[in-house]
Simulated assay, not measured.
Amino acid sequence: MRIVIAEDSVLLREGLIRLLVDAGEEVVGTAGDAEEAMAVIEAERPDIVVMDVRMPPTHTDEGLRAAIRTRELWPDIAVLVLSQWVEERYATELLAGSTTGVGYLLKDRVADVRDFVDAVRRVGAGGTALDPDVVSQLLATSRHRSPLEALTPRETEVLRLMAEGRSNRAIAEALVVSDGAVEKHVSNIFMKLDLPIADTDHRRVLAVLRYLEAAP
């Protein structure tokens, strides 16, 4: 398997190279920052990229952005990102698209050589490798997340006016928009709140109930 490693810590980068080469894999390129990583990936077109989430110059999300960009430009290249701790927003963003050939591991897992090499191979072959701590946190967050978080500010405003008992025409007048714009917002609200058309349910009432349940 042809691998590119993007990691700004020289010691960790050299350690990853040794682990993978000793396991019989081929490291075809390395990088110390996200910009360099993208250039190496484009030149080498590896089977998989092992990428640190936080890289120079700001050490915030450069690596994650490069990983997402890699999947957009070259969908056939697998991506395994490494992070010091669980960063929910980054994990969610990485997994928002296809989960084929993608992984998110905490750096502590690298200490278990066999598990790490297995994860690299699994992701490189088109599978998924998610750290148990990442999975636990994402599940816990999803259980407590308000369904209204999926709505845009304007959709939330429309739903608030619906809860006041206003018709689409009244909402349009209050927001100074067209009736068609309100209908589109209402349709989006139904979709995002998972309220499909059903003969036995009144979606407008159900949407308002969701709003009232989630209201502080």
Rank of each mutant, 00 (worst) to 15 (best):
T100D: 08
T100S: 11
T100N: 02
G101L: 00
V102H: 03
G103F: 10
G103N: 07
G103E: 00
G103R: 02
Y104F: 09
Y104Q: 12
Y104K: 05
L105W: 11
L105P: 02
L105F: 11
L106V: 06
L106P: 01
K107W: 05
K107R: 05
K107L: 03
D108P: 04
D108K: 13
D108G: 10
D108F: 03
D108A: 15
R109F: 02
R109L: 12
R109I: 12
R109P: 00
R109A: 03
V110H: 07
V110A: 03
V110E: 06
A111L: 14
A111V: 14
D112Q: 11
D112V: 11
D112G: 00
D112Y: 12
D112I: 06
D112S: 13
V113L: 04
V113H: 13
V113K: 14
V113M: 12
V113E: 15
R114G: 05
D115T: 15
D115E: 14
D115R: 15
D115A: 15
D115I: 08
D115V: 11
D115M: 03
D115Q: 13
F116C: 06
F116A: 01
F116K: 04
F116Y: 04
V117G: 00
V117T: 02
V117K: 01
V117N: 01
D118Y: 00
D118K: 11
D118C: 01
D118F: 09
A119E: 09
A119C: 07
V120A: 02
V120P: 12
V120F: 02
R122S: 10
R122A: 06
V123L: 01
V123P: 03
G124M: 08
G124E: 05
G124D: 00
G124S: 06
A125D: 13
A125L: 09
A125H: 11
A125Q: 14
G126K: 06
G126L: 01
G126Y: 09
G126T: 07
G126H: 13
T128D: 02
A129Y: 07
L130W: 08
L130R: 10
L130V: 15
D131E: 14
D131P: 03
D131W: 13
P132D: 07
D133C: 00
D133F: 05
V134K: 12
V134M: 02
V134R: 10
V135D: 08
V135Q: 12
V135G: 05
S136N: 07
S136H: 08
Q137R: 15
Q137T: 12
Q137G: 06
Q137C: 04
L138Q: 11
L138S: 11
L139M: 11
L139I: 15
L139A: 13
A140L: 15
A140K: 14
A140C: 01
A140F: 08
T141K: 14
S142G: 05
S142E: 14
R143L: 15
R143I: 12
R143Y: 09
H144S: 13
H144A: 13
H144R: 15
R145G: 04
R145I: 09
R145S: 14
R145P: 02
S146A: 10
S146R: 00
S146F: 03
P147I: 03
P147V: 02
P147S: 00
L148N: 00
L148A: 09
L148Q: 01
